[in-house]
Design a protein around this nucleic acid. Structure first.
Lengths: 110, 110
DNA sequence: AATCTATATCGTAATATTGCAATATTAAAC
DNA sequence: GTTTAATATTGCAATATTACGATATAGATT
């Protein structure tokens, strides 16, 4: 044992968990914040921005990509990473829904 | 090695990562959805709702509690778990900010 | 084509997570 | 006080994650 029992949960629950999990590491939060900060998604300096070795950063980028949070376009010998607004909207909408549902039932709660 | 280098990132980045990480498992997503669904936070039946053994559910609840997503009030010999709107608002606001920042800079991106 | 630059992959060690059986704890019910 | 019910903790095995050095790959530059 030790592996997550994904098959027991709904597809939507797994989808949200996958996105949340990808953002469940400070380095990956830092990456998306950096991608937000820079004007365009000109790339190549993500490694220099982070206090981690190049292979480690590459691995984090891969995980963000697998989760659909970023996408990478090849641009010469470097790669242009960008945020994927579709996925980020999905997680934003999810938490918006959670918060608004929670607000409605606030009264009969501890 | 193998441990996350939290000390290299900002407090805010770590805070967001902690909350996201806690929601990075379908069982824990299912738990918060269940807590949203039930009218009040009457408790005791979270274990029955999930396809996992009682110790496993207890562990997931503990992690959600550590992340500040739920809070548990003792109620007789059972425990009343509730969602913590403050933490959920924090993550909602964070992703709202990400999405709106992303919208602004959409033009000069790939 | 040799070299440089940027990124990815491999291999591996350290650590963390997931899941559960067994057991402990604690308060209610009897 | 003993039993019952609900939840937590312990201990452990299986698996996943994190991090990085070494190496591979691939396009740019010379």
């Amino acid at each position: 044992m030790g592996a997550t029992k994904t098959e027991h949960f709904t597809e939507k629950q797994n989808a949200i968990a996958t996105i949340a999990k990808a953002l469940g590491h400070p380095a990956r939060v830092a990456i998306i914040e950096y991608l937000l900060k820079v004007d365009s998604c000109i790339c190549g300096d993500i490694v220099n921005e982070l206090p981690l070795a190049q292979p480690t950063v590459s691995q984090h980028l891969k995980e963000l990509k697998n989760a659909g949070i970023i996408k990478g376009d090849i641009d010469g010998n470097s790669i242009c990473y960008c945020l994927d607004d579709k996925t980020l909207d999905k997680i934003r909408n999810y938490f918006s829904g959670v918060s608004s549902k929670l607000e409605k039932k606030k009264s009969n709660c501890c």
